[in-house]
């Protein structure tokens, strides 16, 4: 059992109960191309393609829904618009364990000087880490 780090909000429930249907919105051919780009074995059955397309659609709506929930929570009353911004998405990705695979796809934006600071820290940090891992990797007999 994997418990998400952030407590589940009541907004977690699915948006607008949808009807099951055999129709897809996304183009199957495009989804096939995407799947092919990662698969080492070629064959994709129609059923799998259909399921994958549906899945991707659900995922899009899931992301949008969750990001919107976050937007609504952060709205500070004073007439802020009901718009989901990039920042909300990157926050969402940062907070939810099952979105971890998107960390590098939707990274949190940082300022240039913060980035430069990070680079500097890293450069001085790397040598330290190397020393540590060198002494720490002693195998016991």
């Amino acid at each position: 059992m994997v418990e998400p780090k952030t407590p589940k909000t009541p907004t977690q429930q699915k948006p607008a109960q949808r009807k099951p249907s055999a129709d897809t919105f996304l183009p199957l051919s495009r989804v096939r191309t995407i799947m092919k780009s990662s698969m080492d074995t070629g064959l994709i059955t129609n059923e799998v393609l259909f399921l994958m397309t549906k899945c991707t659609e659900l995922f899009v709506q899931h992301l949008a829904h969750e990001a919107h929930a976050l937007t609504a929570k952060q709205k500070t009353g004073t007439g802020t618009s009901d718009t989901v911004k990039y920042e909300h998405l990157s926050q969402l990705v940062n907070r939810n364990k099952n979105l971890e695979f998107l960390l590098q796809i939707v990274p949190e934006k940082i300022r240039v000087h913060e980035f430069q600071e990070m680079l500097r820290m890293n450069r001085s940090g790397v040598s330290d880490d190397d020393d540590e891992s060198g002494s720490g990797s002693d195998s016991d007999e």
């Binding site: 994958m52 991707t56 899009v60 911004k85 990705v93 695979f101 998107l102 796809i105 939707v106």
Partner: peptide, 18 residues
């Protein structure tokens, strides 16, 4: 920008899941 991020994420999701 948010929409673009979602679009990208969807492709990556499909690849990841596959």
């Amino acid at each position: 920008e948010g929409r673009a991020a979602i679009t990208r994420s969807a492709s990556v999701f499909a690849i990841f899941l596959t």
